[in-house]
Design a binder for these strands. Structure first.
Lengths: 132, 132
DNA sequence: ACTTGTTAGTTACAAAAGCAACTATTATTC
DNA sequence: GAATAATAGTTGCTTTTGTAACTAACAAGT
């Protein structure tokens, strides 16, 4: 089962990876960070680590890359100067919107051959396995 | 969906990875090669690449590593000296058997909370998505 | 207030993956 | 049958990831 999951994950993400790589020169982790910020609003790096289950060094590097691309900005919190909130810039939001749309299209295409109930079951299953 | 698949794949394979890493110092690709050889008998490196969807350099390196661990042996085919058939040694077979058992246990544990029909559906779904 | 511990994030170094060029062997085509 | 193309596998170099040690800021206990 892990093997099947890996294969499926690989096949599906490779394809979409090509999109954001070609369009914005983004890496997988960078897209994940953008996605989380776009979806959940401003977050700290730590929160992204926890939600996305990505190691903090990966997030740290992705944040630097995205910052230099002007896709996000950070602001140190005055009440605890260890934290910094990350938020998408206008450019970043546009990128997010664009890629989100692409992702949706991709997802729809992928799921087209399955019934509504199958899709629901799948989702439930994966969420359970992924321990969300 | 790709996101969910990735998370699920990650969670499940990390755990099992620890097993073969600790027991035999094997890397993910190495386990995959052993698995394919154990499951389908002797194969060439190319066949493993295609079946397991792994790049040939990764397979090449995994084969070297496994060879130096005496888990597999290779034999150049006389009729086409470009190919070499890979097969598990006795040690390799034992390793495969052991890890297979572990994998089965792990799988059973993972799937325990799902009904038979759910499992069957999942399997079907993943196979379809992974384009097998 | 000062040691001790924790938490957020970074950096440096090591391991692994990806990519492109290479060798050696066989197939093809003119 | 020589030239060209194709295939299996390897090697070297670059990029990405993983790990562990580090800095900086805060928290708690004594």
């Amino acid at each position: 089962m892990p093997y099947l999951l890996n294969q499926a994950a690989d096949v599906t993400s490779r394809e979409f990876e090509a999109t954001y790589k070609a369009k914005y020169g983004m890496l997988r982790t960078e897209w994940r960070v953008v996605f989380h910020l776009g979806r959940y609003g401003s977050l700290t790096a730590k929160e992204i680590c926890d939600r996305a289950r990505v190691h903090k060094t990966k997030v740290s590097r992705a944040v630097h890359a995205l910052e230099s691309k002007k896709f996000l900005s950070r602001k140190t919190l005055p009440d605890d100067r260890r934290h910094e909130t990350l938020s998408l810039t206008k450019t970043g939001s546009r990128v997010f919107a664009d890629l989100c749309e692409q992702a949706q299209l991709f997802d729809a295409k992928l799921m087209a051959e399955f019934s509504k109930s199958e899709r629901a079951m799948m989702r439930k299953f994966l969420i359970r396995v992924a321990k969300f």
